[in-house]
Design a protein around this nucleic acid. Structure first.
Length: 762
DNA sequence: TCTTCGCGGTATGGC
DNA sequence: ACCGCGAAGA
């Protein structure tokens, strides 16, 4: 669904797997049920066949949990226990939702269309489109992402005269978000606020809520909290959704927070048809207030819970599983589970020490090339995981230089680019005339001579009168203190927008509207006038955006034959505001996949590299400070268990952070791996000539043969390739790792740091 | 009002 | 190493 906007076409799913056949609907139920159960192991079958009432499936990594969920849904349909429209299946990420939808579709065909298979946030947004008016929002409320919400909060803090140096807006935002996820409102927060900082938060909290409501906007937390509010406050709403969702299924239950838990209780507390699937060992979202206790206490929270444990792993080699088990065993908290497999022993875990992040990246790139050439490993079956997004940059640079094409999941997202946010903000303002943050974003972009002063006066007029910003600019002459020039500029802006608004209200295709917006606002003209490569790139991004909108239009036409309660524009905005780039770029193409460990959950690859395994980086220092060692270890467990056949863990002795070189020890998690499962290599020891570690098996460094290796090895006469200067030849090697290279392109001779310059041997 | 420059904070993770 | 913001200049 969401994900489809940018996914390759629509693989118009033939939707009928061999099992169900075209005759499925008329096939006797018993047969269909038998086919659904065939191929499931004992515990899996038990979970699928579960009758009414709460069910907890403790599913170890790779134990076929999605299979159980999808088959359970199909089973409910096949046995007549539920109709498609009565199913609510919740996951945490859009990617997981898209996959689940696809796989359910393969089992049950087009009836998947009537089901709600989505994320918590999407489900809530959808429910709120129906009922938000009960809480004083209009249906067309805007969803603010973290950046938008921060802008709003900064505005509020400014209004209160809070010094941002003493009370960083981000910290205030985190506090408010934390409170909301605990379902603590601003009044109760105020009562328990302690100390200067919390008292400041207690002051900002209600104002922020007020301004958000005036802007008819919700942040991500609001989506959950407001849904809980509306379901809790209004009996008819509660009854409606309870009747609608007679079966609720939740994936990754270990990652639910209190608000989500409460919502599930409200929706499923009565009929109790709640199936939750999860693995406490993979609980890695404490930072966004997920509470492992939810899964640990599920048995106590509901009566007559059936528990099924899935421990047989169908994914990884025994070596990888043993490594995972060894790591997770160190945690004190958690339910005992032991993964086992009928599969092969497999290759040992490869541990590699490198001198710095550049060498690490080169090593990974070289090893990917070697695997491809010597073991015919497809690049699409290779993934590189890192702890923080910042680590992707060096990897990206290096892979590019090695001509290894890759895709990055997450990270700087398409929808977070300035030009894309601008375009969306125009649309948001058209859909929601009170959207002050979007107004602030677009009113002077492109430049219209409406600067900070004018904007500030408009904003405070909005605050004092409580009128939507749209109405304020419609009657801009009433805003106190504005110069004649400012009034004129704002009026012109208003006229343009009013024309666009009429088009929006005609409810035509979103793509057409978006194009009109970009043209008539002068946005494209301003871009064109820049005449820079960057501006060109931004133009291309906007074209991509329009293309995506066009796909949305087609999809909407086809999927929902006009039975939607909201306008196409509103629906589009909702979709993309919850969309994060999972890059449908397709797994068929030969791309190596890069992502954070958090993003990796739920995925699997033949070959996995976990880079940056250093104390301080992973486990991350900030996480350790917050007492999150166990969560970091679970994150490591998640990373390890993604690998089917080959697992590499690498670390760099030195890594640049904020431009400063930091020396680090290998991650404690590396040391927690039993020696008999690993093979340890060190390129660092060799190139530096010294080693801090005796455990380095220096005779086992076969990977070096294809690694372009530490550039220190360059000799006069070597042919090299530089990322930007192209081909060249080494004319001299100087002490301190400096090489002199003459480039054939322009004949220039340059001194380069062999270790850091983007060069490699030919 | 807009643009440029320089400083300082930043980069744990995501819906 | 990069981005955003404020101050100062145009």
């Amino acid at each position: 669904m969401l994900g489809d906007v940018f996914q390759e076409g629509h693989p118009e799913t033939p939707a009928q797997p061999p099992a169900a056949g075209p005759g499925a609907p008329t096939e006797p139920g018993a047969d269909r049920v038998e086919r659904l159960l065939a191929g499931l192991n004992g515990p899996q079958r038990e979970a699928v066949e579960h009758g009414e009432g709460p069910l907890l499936v403790l599913a170890g990594a790779g134990s076929g949990k999605t299979r159980v969920l999808t088959h359970r849904i199909a089973y409910l349909l096949a046995t007549g226990a539920a109709r498609p429209g009565e199913i609510l299946a919740i996951t945490f990420t859009n990617k997981a939702a898209a996959e689940m939808r696809e796989r359910v579709g393969q089992l049950v065909g087009r009836s998947v269309r009537a089901m709600w298979v989505t994320t918590f946030h999407s489900a809530c947004a959808r429910m709120l489109r129906v009922d938000a008016e009960r809480l004083g929002y209009s249906k067309s409320f805007t969803i603010y992402d973290q950046a938008d919400s921060l802008r709003m909060l900064k505005r509020c803090l400014g209004e209160l005269g809070v010094d941002p140096k003493r009370f960083p807006p981000r910290a205030v935002q985190a506090k408010i978000s934390g409170a909301k996820n605990q379902l603590i409102d601003s009044d109760s927060y105020n009562e328990s606020a302690f100390g200067e900082f919390e008292e400041t938060v207690a002051e900002a909290f209600p104002l922020y809520e007020k301004r958000m409501r005036e802007a008819n906007a919700m942040d991500f937390d609001d989506l959950l909290v407001r849904t809980v509010n509306v379901v809790e406050l209004f009996e008819d709403v509660r009854e409606r959704w309870r009747r609608t969702f007679r079966h609720v299924l939740v994936d990754e239950y270990q990652d639910t927070n209190h608000a989500q838990y409460r919502l599930l209780q409200l929706l499923a507390g009565e009929h109790k048809n709640l199936m939750v699937v999860g693995d406490d060992s993979q609980s890695i979202y404490g930072f966004r207030h997920a509470d492992v206790r939810n899964i640990l206490d599920f048995e106590k929270d509901f009566d007559d819970v059936e528990i099924v444990k899935l421990e047989q792993n169908y994914r990884s080699t025994q070596t990888i599983l043993s490594a995972a088990n060894a790591v997770i065993e160190r945690n004190r908290e958690g339910l005992k589970k032991e993964l086992w497999s009928e599969g092969d022993e497999g290759a040992p875990v490869q541990l590699n020490e490198l001198t710095d992040e550049h060498e690490e990246a080169r090593w990974v790139a070289g090893e990917i090339e070697r695997l491809e050439q010597e073991e015919s490993v497809s690049r699409s079956e290779v993934a590189v995981f890192y702890r923080t997004n910042a680590m992707s940059r060096v990897l990206e640079d290096t892979l590019q230089r090695f001509d290894v094409s890759y895709q990055v999941i997450g990270g700087t997202k398409f929808y977070e680019r300035a030009e894309v946010k601008d375009a969306i903000a125009y649309l948001s303002l058209l859909a929601n005339p009170a959207d002050l943050v979007s107004f602030g974003r677009v009113v002077n972009s492109p430049r219209r001579g409406i600067g900070n002063t004018t904007q500030g006066r408009i904003a405070s007029h909005v605050n004092t009168t409580g009128m939507p910003v749209w109405e304020v600019i419609e009657r801009v002459e009433e805003v106190p203190g504005l110069s004649g020039a400012a009034i004129k500029a704002v009026s012109r802006f208003y006229e343009t927008m009013a024309g666009l608004r009429e088009r929006a209200e005609a409810e035509g295709p979103v793509a057409t509207l978006l194009e009109a917006v970009l043209h008539e606002s002068g946005y494209l003209d301003a871009l064109a006038a820049e005449r820079t490569v960057e501006a060109e790139g931004r133009g291309e991004n906007l074209e991509t955006l329009i293309g995506g909108a066009a796909e949305f239009d087609v999809e909407r036409e086809r999927e929902r034959e006009g039975e939607s309660e909201v306008s196409p524009l509103e629906e589009y905005l909702q979709q993309i505001s919850l969309y994060t780039e999972q890059d449908g770029l397709a797994s068929e193409s030969e791309l190596v996949t890069l992502m954070t460990l958090h993003n990796a959950k739920g995925l699997e690859y033949d070959t996995v590299f976990v880079v940056g395994c250093e104390e301080g980086a992973f486990p991350h220092m900030r996480a350790l400070e917050e007492g999150g060692e166990e969560e970091e270890r679970r994150l490591c467990y998640v990373g390890i268990t993604r690998a089917r056949k080959r697992l590499y863990m690498t670390w760099a002795r030195e890594r640049r952070l904020f431009g400063r070189a930091e020396r680090n020890l290998p991650s404690r998690f590396v040391d927690e791996l039993p020696h008999e499962l690993t093979e340890r290599h060190s390129a660092a020891a060799r190139s530096l000539g010294t080693s801090w570690s005796n455990s380095v098996a220096s005779e086992v460094t076969p990977a070096q043969s294809v690694d372009p290796g530490p550039a220190l090895e360059l000799q006069t006469g070597d042919d090299v390739v530089h990322a930007s200067f192209g081909d060249g030849v080494v004319t001299a090697v100087e002490p301190g790792g400096v090489v002199v290279v003459r480039f054939s392109g322009d004949g220039s001779e340059r001194k380069l740091m062999a270790d850091y310059a983007p060069i490699r041997k030919r």
